[in-house]
Amino acid sequence: MVFRSYGLVSFPSGARGKSPEIAPWLSTLHEWSAWILFGLFALHIAGILFHHVLRRDDTLYRIV
């Protein structure tokens, strides 16, 4: 099976066959990964606000 990305790039998809027995595990892994990524994003936003509003240092300006 070959995956075509907008007709520009083709590469093997890696899916040799469907495995319904691991689908719930992969779904749970996908959900947890999304929440962890969202949490890390929220921590970064909180860090930006902490430095810019509370500490009033120039960290934000050094990043930008």
Rank of each mutant, 00 (worst) to 15 (best):
M1V: 11
M1S: 04
V2H: 14
V2D: 11
F3S: 06
F3C: 11
R4A: 15
R4E: 15
R4K: 06
R4L: 11
R4S: 15
S5H: 10
S5A: 07
Y6P: 10
Y6N: 14
Y6W: 04
Y6V: 10
G7H: 07
G7C: 04
G7W: 01
L8R: 10
L8F: 02
L8N: 11
V9F: 07
V9W: 05
V9C: 08
F11I: 07
P12E: 03
P12R: 11
P12Q: 09
S13R: 04
G14D: 02
G14K: 01
A15Y: 13
A15H: 12
A15E: 06
R16C: 00
R16D: 01
G17T: 10
G17H: 13
K18E: 14
K18T: 13
K18I: 11
K18Y: 01
I22R: 12
I22M: 06
A23R: 11
A23L: 11
A23H: 11
A23W: 05
P24R: 01
P24N: 03
W25K: 04
W25F: 08
W25L: 15
L26E: 14
L26S: 06
L26P: 00
S27L: 09
S27A: 09
S27F: 12
T28F: 14
L29K: 07
L29I: 07
L29E: 08
L29N: 06
L29D: 14
L29W: 08
E31W: 05
E31D: 13
E31R: 11
W32P: 02
W32S: 12
W32C: 07
W32A: 14
S33V: 08
S33D: 09
A34F: 15
A34I: 12
W35R: 15
I36F: 13
I36W: 05
L37N: 13
L37D: 07
L37W: 01
L37V: 12
G39L: 06
L40M: 15
F41G: 06
F41H: 11
A42M: 14
A42D: 10
A42V: 13
A42T: 05
L43K: 00
L43R: 01
I45R: 02
I45C: 12
I45T: 09
I45K: 04
A46N: 10
A46L: 10
A46D: 04
G47I: 01
G47R: 03
G47K: 01
I48E: 02
I48T: 11
L49F: 12
L49T: 03
F50M: 01
F50I: 02
H52Q: 05
H52Y: 10
V53R: 06
V53S: 01
V53N: 05
V53I: 02
L54N: 02
L54V: 10
L54K: 08
L54I: 09
R55D: 03
R55K: 01
R55I: 05
R55S: 03
R56V: 04
D57G: 00
D57P: 15
D57F: 01
D58K: 09
T59C: 04
T59M: 05
L60K: 04
L60S: 05
L60G: 04
L60W: 03
Y61V: 13
Y61K: 15
Y61S: 13
Y61G: 09
R62H: 08
R62E: 00
R62I: 02
I63V: 13
V64A: 14
